[in-house]
Protein backbone atom coordinates (compact mmCIF):
# COMPACT_ATOMS: atom_id res chain seq x y z
CA UNK A 1 0.00 0.00 0.00
CA UNK A 2 2.68 2.44 1.03
CA UNK A 3 4.76 1.41 -1.94
CA UNK A 4 1.88 1.93 -4.29
CA UNK A 5 1.11 5.25 -2.74
CA UNK A 6 4.68 6.42 -3.14
CA UNK A 7 4.75 5.32 -6.77
CA UNK A 8 1.52 7.12 -7.44
CA UNK A 9 2.94 10.20 -5.80
CA UNK A 10 6.00 10.07 -7.97
CA UNK A 11 3.95 9.89 -11.12
CA UNK A 12 1.61 12.68 -10.12
CA UNK A 13 4.46 14.82 -9.02
CA UNK A 14 6.21 14.52 -12.32
CA UNK A 15 2.96 15.34 -13.97
CA UNK A 16 2.66 18.46 -11.96
CA UNK A 17 6.26 19.29 -12.62
CA UNK A 18 5.72 18.90 -16.32
CA UNK A 19 2.67 21.11 -16.34
CA UNK A 20 4.44 23.88 -14.55
CA UNK A 21 7.62 23.23 -16.45
CA UNK A 22 5.90 23.44 -19.78
CA UNK A 23 5.12 27.11 -19.66
CA UNK A 24 8.68 27.96 -18.81
CA UNK A 25 10.11 25.71 -21.43
CA UNK A 26 8.04 27.22 -24.17
CA UNK A 27 9.31 30.64 -23.36
CA UNK A 28 12.87 29.48 -23.42
CA UNK A 29 12.42 28.02 -26.83
CA UNK A 30 10.89 31.18 -28.13
CA UNK A 31 13.93 33.13 -27.14
CA UNK A 32 16.42 30.80 -28.65
CA UNK A 33 14.64 29.90 -31.82
CA UNK A 34 15.50 32.71 -34.18
CA UNK A 35 19.24 32.39 -34.11
CA UNK A 36 20.33 33.04 -37.62
CA UNK A 37 21.63 29.98 -39.38
CA UNK A 38 25.24 30.21 -40.35
CA UNK A 39 25.35 31.70 -43.74
CA UNK A 40 26.95 29.72 -46.46
CA UNK A 41 29.04 31.86 -48.64
CA UNK A 42 27.07 32.27 -51.79
CA UNK A 43 28.78 33.42 -54.92
CA UNK A 44 28.33 37.12 -55.46
CA UNK A 45 26.48 38.30 -58.53
CA UNK A 46 28.53 38.25 -61.72
CA UNK A 47 31.69 39.73 -60.40
CA UNK A 48 33.11 41.49 -63.39
CA UNK A 49 35.90 39.16 -64.36
CA UNK A 50 38.82 40.28 -66.46
CA UNK A 51 36.87 39.09 -69.47
CA UNK A 52 34.68 41.68 -71.19
CA UNK A 53 31.41 41.75 -69.29
CA UNK A 54 28.21 40.61 -70.92
CA UNK A 55 25.64 43.14 -71.96
CA UNK A 56 24.01 44.02 -68.65
CA UNK A 57 20.32 43.69 -68.05
CA UNK A 58 20.53 46.62 -65.73
CA UNK A 59 17.99 49.40 -65.85
CA UNK A 60 19.46 51.91 -68.24
CA UNK A 61 21.18 54.53 -66.13
CA UNK A 62 19.11 57.45 -67.35
CA UNK A 63 19.88 58.32 -70.92
CA UNK A 64 23.59 58.06 -70.86
CA UNK A 65 24.17 61.69 -71.63
CA UNK A 66 27.59 61.62 -73.22
CA UNK A 67 28.94 64.23 -70.88
CA UNK A 68 32.44 64.98 -71.94
CA UNK A 69 34.22 65.73 -68.74
CA UNK A 70 36.91 68.26 -69.38
CA UNK A 71 39.87 66.59 -67.79
CA UNK A 72 43.03 68.35 -66.79
CA UNK A 73 45.08 66.95 -69.64
CA UNK A 74 45.26 69.30 -72.60
CA UNK A 75 46.12 66.76 -75.29
CA UNK A 76 43.84 63.80 -74.76
CA UNK A 77 40.35 63.91 -73.32
CA UNK A 78 39.19 60.77 -71.53
CA UNK A 79 35.49 60.27 -71.11
CA UNK A 80 33.84 59.28 -67.86
CA UNK A 81 32.06 55.95 -67.49
CA UNK A 82 28.62 55.67 -65.84
CA UNK A 83 27.01 52.96 -63.71
CA UNK A 84 23.59 51.86 -62.47
CA UNK A 85 22.48 52.33 -58.85
CA UNK A 86 24.47 50.12 -56.46
CA UNK A 87 26.13 48.49 -59.51
CA UNK A 88 29.68 48.18 -60.65
CA UNK A 89 29.22 46.12 -63.79
CA UNK A 90 29.93 47.90 -67.08
CA UNK A 91 26.98 48.72 -69.30
CA UNK A 92 27.33 48.32 -73.08
CA UNK A 93 27.71 52.07 -73.39
CA UNK A 94 30.35 52.09 -70.70
CA UNK A 95 32.40 49.42 -72.49
CA UNK A 96 32.24 51.43 -75.71
CA UNK A 97 33.48 54.51 -73.91
CA UNK A 98 36.29 52.49 -72.33
CA UNK A 99 37.34 51.15 -75.73
CA UNK A 100 37.77 54.71 -76.99
CA UNK A 101 39.58 55.61 -73.78
CA UNK A 102 41.90 52.64 -74.19
CA UNK A 103 42.89 53.80 -77.67
CA UNK A 104 43.49 57.30 -76.38
CA UNK A 105 45.57 56.11 -73.44
CA UNK A 106 47.74 53.98 -75.72
CA UNK A 107 48.65 57.11 -77.68
CA UNK A 108 50.11 58.87 -74.66
CA UNK A 109 52.74 57.89 -72.13
CA UNK A 110 51.29 59.38 -68.94
CA UNK A 111 49.83 57.35 -66.16
CA UNK A 112 46.08 57.35 -65.68
CA UNK A 113 44.17 57.28 -62.41
CA UNK A 114 40.68 55.83 -62.47
CA UNK A 115 38.54 57.54 -59.83
CA UNK A 116 35.41 55.71 -58.72
CA UNK A 117 32.46 57.80 -57.53
CA UNK A 118 28.94 57.18 -56.25
CA UNK A 119 25.69 59.04 -55.86
CA UNK A 120 24.70 60.43 -52.49
CA UNK A 121 22.11 57.87 -51.59
CA UNK A 122 23.99 54.99 -50.03
CA UNK A 123 26.05 55.13 -46.86
CA UNK A 124 29.36 56.96 -47.07
CA UNK A 125 31.34 53.88 -46.02
CA UNK A 126 29.70 51.43 -48.36
CA UNK A 127 30.02 53.91 -51.21
CA UNK A 128 33.77 54.13 -50.68
CA UNK A 129 34.00 50.41 -51.34
CA UNK A 130 31.50 50.56 -54.17
CA UNK A 131 33.43 53.38 -55.85
CA UNK A 132 36.58 51.36 -55.62
CA UNK A 133 34.89 48.40 -57.28
CA UNK A 134 33.72 50.70 -60.08
CA UNK A 135 37.25 51.94 -60.62
CA UNK A 136 38.63 48.42 -60.57
CA UNK A 137 36.06 47.16 -63.06
CA UNK A 138 37.17 49.80 -65.53
CA UNK A 139 40.82 49.10 -64.77
CA UNK A 140 40.46 45.40 -65.50
CA UNK A 141 38.63 46.08 -68.74
CA UNK A 142 41.26 48.56 -69.90
CA UNK A 143 43.95 45.97 -69.19
CA UNK A 144 42.14 43.38 -71.30
CA UNK A 145 42.01 46.01 -74.05
CA UNK A 146 45.79 46.12 -73.99
CA UNK A 147 46.55 49.08 -71.72
CA UNK A 148 49.66 48.25 -69.68
CA UNK A 149 48.65 47.57 -66.08
CA UNK A 150 51.48 49.69 -64.64
CA UNK A 151 50.04 52.81 -66.22
CA UNK A 152 46.72 52.47 -64.42
CA UNK A 153 45.89 53.16 -60.79
CA UNK A 154 42.59 53.33 -58.98
CA UNK A 155 41.14 55.38 -56.14
CA UNK A 156 37.67 55.72 -54.70
CA UNK A 157 36.09 58.92 -53.53
CA UNK A 158 32.82 57.25 -52.64
CA UNK A 159 30.21 59.97 -52.55
CA UNK A 160 32.66 62.61 -51.40
CA UNK A 161 33.16 64.27 -54.80
CA UNK A 162 29.79 64.63 -56.51
CA UNK A 163 29.85 66.24 -59.95
CA UNK A 164 26.27 67.42 -59.54
CA UNK A 165 25.11 68.28 -56.03
CA UNK A 166 21.42 67.97 -56.93
CA UNK A 167 19.15 65.51 -55.16
CA UNK A 168 17.43 63.93 -58.14
CA UNK A 169 17.91 61.01 -60.47
CA UNK A 170 19.56 63.16 -63.13
CA UNK A 171 22.20 64.33 -60.66
CA UNK A 172 22.66 60.86 -59.21
CA UNK A 173 23.17 59.35 -62.66
CA UNK A 174 25.95 61.86 -63.33
CA UNK A 175 27.62 61.04 -60.02
CA UNK A 176 27.73 57.25 -60.44
CA UNK A 177 30.86 57.38 -62.52
CA UNK A 178 34.53 56.63 -63.07
CA UNK A 179 36.59 59.66 -63.97
CA UNK A 180 39.80 58.85 -65.84
CA UNK A 181 42.41 61.40 -64.87
CA UNK A 182 45.73 61.70 -66.67
CA UNK A 183 48.49 62.13 -64.12
CA UNK A 184 51.35 64.38 -65.06
Amino acid sequence: MKQKMAKLLLVVCFGAFLISGCSCLKEDVKVEEPIAPPVKVVEAPPAPAPAPPPAPVVVAPVKEVPVVVPVVAPVVVLQSVYFGFDKYVLTADASDVLKKNADAIKKITSKVQIQGNCDERGSAEYNLALGENRAKTAQKYLITLGVPADRLSVISFGKEKPLDTGHNEAAWAKNRRDDLVILK
Binding site: P37, P38, V39, V42, A44, D86, G122, Y126
Partner: peptide, 18 residues
Protein backbone atom coordinates in the same frame (compact mmCIF):
# COMPACT_ATOMS: atom_id res chain seq x y z
CA UNK B 1 28.08 39.05 -50.56
CA UNK B 2 24.43 38.13 -51.01
CA UNK B 3 23.77 40.92 -53.45
CA UNK B 4 22.97 43.85 -51.18
CA UNK B 5 24.64 45.22 -48.05
CA UNK B 6 23.64 43.32 -44.89
CA UNK B 7 25.06 43.00 -41.38
CA UNK B 8 27.05 39.84 -40.59
CA UNK B 9 28.74 38.63 -37.43
CA UNK B 10 31.89 36.56 -37.13
CA UNK B 11 34.33 35.59 -34.41
CA UNK B 12 37.20 38.03 -34.25
CA UNK B 13 39.42 35.44 -35.92
CA UNK B 14 37.14 35.33 -38.95
CA UNK B 15 35.41 32.03 -38.18
CA UNK B 16 31.74 31.27 -37.51
CA UNK B 17 30.38 33.72 -40.02
CA UNK B 18 26.64 34.25 -39.83
Amino acid sequence: RLGSPQIFIMDSNGSNLR
